[in-house]
Simulated assay, not measured.
Amino acid sequence: MLLEKIASYAKNYIRNLKNLEFRQPRSQNSVNKKWKPPLLNSYKTNFDGAMFNESDEVGIGVVIRNCKGELMAALLEKIQKPQSVVALEMLAARRAALFACECGFQQSSFEGDSELVIKALRYGEMQHSSVGHILKDTMSYASCFQSCSFFHMGRQGNSIAHALAQRARLSFPIVVWMESVPLDIMSFVMSDISSIE
């Protein structure tokens, strides 16, 4: 019985990793399709959430990089499934702001692939009252930064955060890396770095 569970777990893990490599962006209309580095002496924090249909849990992925595209910190977190995808994306934004603050990166731009959430973060208001408190928390964390901005990024330009969020499915509740990520995520990092003009 235990060996069957281990074999099943391994098969699912490998299948999920293969799926990460071939996933297409959510929005083909997004203006920013490729990741671009932040300005000199600042950081870029990408975030994403992933729903797991087979579970009552979801994943959050966050990655912080410098102007050379180098990894400064990364996080994945598995949490209870919220009431909506919008709530999940807002929770991912809040976790990204908190993580960047905890790591001491005082100048950061934040990118996510939910246009609705980015608009709410830019303008400080949300039409979905069920996530207003999460928006308020996120804005509170954002006020701690010397400089902070929010941008919409298509899935293709947010691939590392997305891969981390998907990886949470098979992980401990929270995992943090400083200046590194697992090898299966590193291919996304190298792809972004090679595309820097």
Rank of each mutant, 00 (worst) to 15 (best):
S159A: 15
D137S: 11
G124E: 10
F52R: 12
Q156R: 12
K119E: 04
N41T: 05
E115W: 01
D48C: 05
C103D: 00
E77A: 06
C148R: 07
E77D: 03
F47T: 13
A100T: 00
G69E: 03
R122F: 04
G49N: 00
S149P: 06
R15E: 10
S191K: 14
L2C: 08
S109L: 14
V85G: 04
L17H: 10
W35K: 09
P182S: 11
E54C: 14
K136A: 13
N41K: 10
I60K: 02
I6N: 01
G61F: 01
L17G: 08
L39N: 09
S194E: 08
N19E: 10
S27T: 08
I14D: 05
L91Y: 01
G132F: 10
V85K: 08
A165V: 08
Q146K: 15
E70D: 10
F47L: 14
R15V: 09
G157N: 02
V58P: 12
E197V: 13
I14Y: 07
L71D: 01
E77Y: 03
Q106H: 06
A163G: 13
A7Q: 13
K11E: 06
S194F: 10
S30N: 13
F99G: 01
V181H: 00
T138S: 06
M186P: 00
I196R: 06
I6Q: 03
I60A: 01
S108T: 15
C67S: 14
Q146H: 14
I118A: 05
R23N: 06
N158E: 03
S108H: 10
Q156T: 12
H152D: 05
V175Q: 07
A161I: 02
I174R: 15
D56K: 15
Q156V: 08
E89C: 03
Q146W: 09
E111P: 09
L2V: 08
A161K: 01
A161Y: 00
Y141V: 09
L116H: 07
K11T: 07
L40Y: 09
G132E: 13
H152L: 10
L91F: 03
K36S: 06
E115F: 01
A93V: 12
D113N: 11
A100V: 01
I64F: 15
D192Y: 01
C148D: 02
M72I: 13
K136T: 13
P173Q: 04
Q106N: 09
